[in-house]
Design a protein around this nucleic acid. Structure first.
Lengths: 222, 222
DNA sequence: CTACTTAGTGTAAAACTTACACTTAAACAT
DNA sequence: ATGTTTAAGTGTAAGTTTTACACTAAGTAG
C-alpha cells in the first residue's frame, strides 16, 4: 500500500513524558528502542499518528502499547519540529506530559519496545532524538505548575498523608518546605478531604490519610 | 510531481494569531480566504509547512506572504489536530501568537489572500476551520502572561507613555487599574527607561515618553 | 485668566507570606 | 513499664506585598 500527495508531507508523532515519584526521587518512564534509528537507545514512549486519530488518543495509545500504562491524564506540552530531528524523514512531534502515582502503575515491556524502565530525572541515560530537550521542558512546566495549581495531586495514590504530599513538592522543586506553611497553603486550596483513616508507619505517631476532593481535575489556584 | 509514503501522512500547517491594539481595543489580524474550503471566510494567516522548514519560520513566512507583516516575535501557542478540522485532508496545525504595535505595522493584501483586516477581538466575523478556538486560546494566554511577564511591551511602539501602557493592560484584562499601583508595579519590574522626551497631546500636562529596556526579550516577573 | 483634561506622585490599612518550637502518639529497646 | 526515638500535628508574630485612595502639575481651549 502506498499513499501519494502533491506536496511532501512530514510525519507526525506524539511523545509522552510520564513522570512518577519513587523513593523520593523524580523519575521518567523510558522505553528502549528495538530498531534504528537510535536502536538500543532509551527514548520517550510515543509513535506515529494514525490518520484518523486525535493527537491525545495517539499519545495514550502509544503509551499503552509501549509501556502498558493506561488511563493517565495528559496535558499538551509543546510541539517539536526542527528539520533533521529524525534522520529518516521530517517528523513533527507533539509532546504531552503526565504525572502518575508511580507505585500504582503497572509497567510492562510491550511489542515494539525491548524494555521499559523508570529513570531518575537527574540521571538520565543517553536519549534518542531530541528527547532530552522534551524532558527538560516538561520538568520545567511541572515545576512551575506546582506553584499555581493542584497538579501535584496527580502524583498521589488514592489515599496519602500530608507528609507524603509535601515530599512530592520537595522532590520536584528540589528544596525543603516549612511543614506548617505548607499545610496552611493546602488548607486555602481546599482540595483535600480527610478520610478519617490513619496510616501506621513506623515508630511514631500515625498520619491522617487524605484523598483529593476532585481527583480528575487539576485546579488552578492563586 | 508526487510524493509517496508507506503510511498516510497528515498535512502540517502553522497559523498565527497576530494581536494589536487600535483605538483602545484588542484586534486580531485576519485574512479573507480566496479559495475553498471556506472561500470568502475570514481566517488566521497561515499555511502549509515546507518540508525542510522550521515550524516558526513557516509561521513567519506565511504571515509575511499573506499580510506583509514581518519580523514579529512569535511564541508557540498550542497544536490543534482534531480529525475533521479541515475537510480536504487531515491537518495538524501548530498555532503561534504574536503581539505588535499595531500603528507601526504596514499591512497589505498579498497573493493568496483577497484581503487583510484587523477585527476587534470582541466582534469577530465567522471564521474558517476551528480558528475561533485558536484565537480564544491565544487571548487567554496573553491575558495570563500580562500578569507575570512584560509581554505587554510587545504592543508598544518604540516610545510610549505610561498612560498608553496602562491602557494596553486595561484593554486586554478588560478592567480598570489604579494608576499609582500600576506605576509602582512597573517600577519594580525595572523594564523601562525614561527617554527624557515628552509627548504633547491635547489640553493637558504632557506625558513623559519611555522606551523598553530590552525590547527583544519578554521578561518573566514575580 | 478660567475651566478642563490628563500626568504625576505617597501613605496607611489590609492581606498574604514567612519564620519559628513545642506537644502528641506511636514503635522500639531495655 | 518506662524511657527514647521518630514523624505528626498545630498557632502566632514579624515582614512583605497588595490595595485603596486624593491632591497638585502642566498643558490646551474658550
Amino acid at each position: 500500500m502506498s499513499y501519494q500527495y502533491n506536496y511532501p508531507h512530514p510525519a507526525v508523532t506524539t511523545d509522552v513524558v510520564l513522570f512518577g515519584l519513587i523513593d523520593e526521587c523524580l523519575k521518567v518512564l523510558l522505553v528502549r528502542r528495538a530498531r534504528p534509528p537510535f536502536a538500543n537507545h532509551w527514548a520517550l514512549p510515543g509513535g506515529f499518528l494514525d490518520i484518523d486519530e486525535d493527537l491525545e488518543d495517539c499519545a495514550l495509545r502509544e503509551l499503552e502499547e509501549e509501556t502498558g500504562v493506561s488511563g493517565v491524564y495528559l496535558e499538551q506540552l509543546y510541539t517539536f519540529g526542527k528539520p533533521g530531528r529524525d534522520p529518516r524523514e521530517r517528523v513533527i512531534s507533539v509532546a504531552y506530559y503526565a504525572l502518575v502515582p508511580a507505585t500504582d502503575i503497572e509497567i510492562r515491556a510491550a511489542s515494539d519496545a525491548r524494555a521499559v524502565r523508570w529513570f531518575a530525572y537527574r540521571d538520565l541515560p543517553e536519549l534518542a532524538f531530541d528527547h532530552v530537550d522534551i524532558i527538560h521542558k516538561a520538568q520545567q512546566r511541572v515545576s512551575s505548575k506546582l506553584d499555581y495549581s493542584t497538579i501535584a495531586l496527580k502524583f498521589m495514590p488514592e489515599k496519602f498523608t500530608l507528609g507524603e504530599l509535601q515530599s512530592v513538592y520537595e522532590c520536584i522543586l528540589d528544596e525543603r518546605l516549612d511543614k506548617r506553611n505548607f499545610r496552611k497553603r493546602l488548607r486555602t486550596y481546599d482540595c483535600l478531604t480527610d478520610t478519617g483513616e490513619v496510616r501506621r508507619n513506623g515508630g511514631h505517631r500515625p498520619a491522617r490519610l487524605y484523598r483529593a476532593k476532585s481527583p480528575d481535575t487539576v485546579q488552578i489556584v492563586k
